[in-house]
Design a protein around this nucleic acid. Sequence first.
DNA 1: GTAACCTACAACCAAATGGTTGTAGATCAT
DNA 2: ATGATCTACAACCATTTGGTTGTAGGTTAC
Lengths: 119, 119
Amino acid sequence: MVVDHLDDAGIDRLFQALADPTRRDIVRRVTLGGYSVSGLAALYAMSFAAVQKHVAVLERASLVSKEKRGREQIVRGNHDGLQNVRRLLDEYEAIWRQRAERIADILAEEPKNNGRIQQ
Amino acid sequence: MVVDHLDDAGIDRLFQALADPTRRDIVRRVTLGGYSVSGLAALYAMSFAAVQKHVAVLERASLVSKEKRGREQIVRGNHDGLQNVRRLLDEYEAIWRQRAERIADILAEEPKNNGRIQQ
DNA sequence: GTAACCTACAACCAAATGGTTGTAGATCAT
DNA sequence: ATGATCTACAACCATTTGGTTGTAGGTTAC
């Protein structure tokens, strides 16, 4: 179920969704506990519709999910979405570390040494 | 030391910069080794100026840095920028874990609650 | 039933984004 | 010196984004 084969568009949506301070705040809050959309809207100096749009952006990015309860819609954090972003950055980091190790290897090389130190 | 007091605008720039597949590819490539701007431009089906803009976005987000060498400008990955993003997500993750632990505590409690669901 | 509330969605607007072409300043090769 | 290359930047254009107001439908309270 954690098979998340994220395509480019999905990654775009993830980072794009996090590139707004209001949306990051929403993520932080709904991760700590459920909020109705209007409950969220009351927190920010903007219209209900604006907050609704922010929630929609987060939902399409799989960072939050909504659950209908009576007349209101409860927004909750989606941990898998966040983990996806972290894993993506881990990959970038791995590439960098690989490069750093290669450089370290070159610097550590000695003329009489014929082998690499690590994998 | 890498004391990097990131404000909201800085975080915006970081995530915004990563929300484009061309820019993510540039980050990946220049992290593995230096590229001139025109060297990068040759890789993508868009104008030199477009790639130049992408590099500028990445530079303002502190994800890459440029170093002038002769008539060309060498673009290299900035590891600190990536680490910043990762650290941000670690914070979100910590918040989530905190919540998960609270839920675990609640579930482990004696059933003396009177039916109220605690979010 | 009626009023109040929560949500969804359309239409609109200003600003930002991602792309283009064109111009101009440095630097390198001949 | 001339021409080719590399870069920077301005001006422009289409689309997206982040916000607004307004309308309409479903749910709850009285």
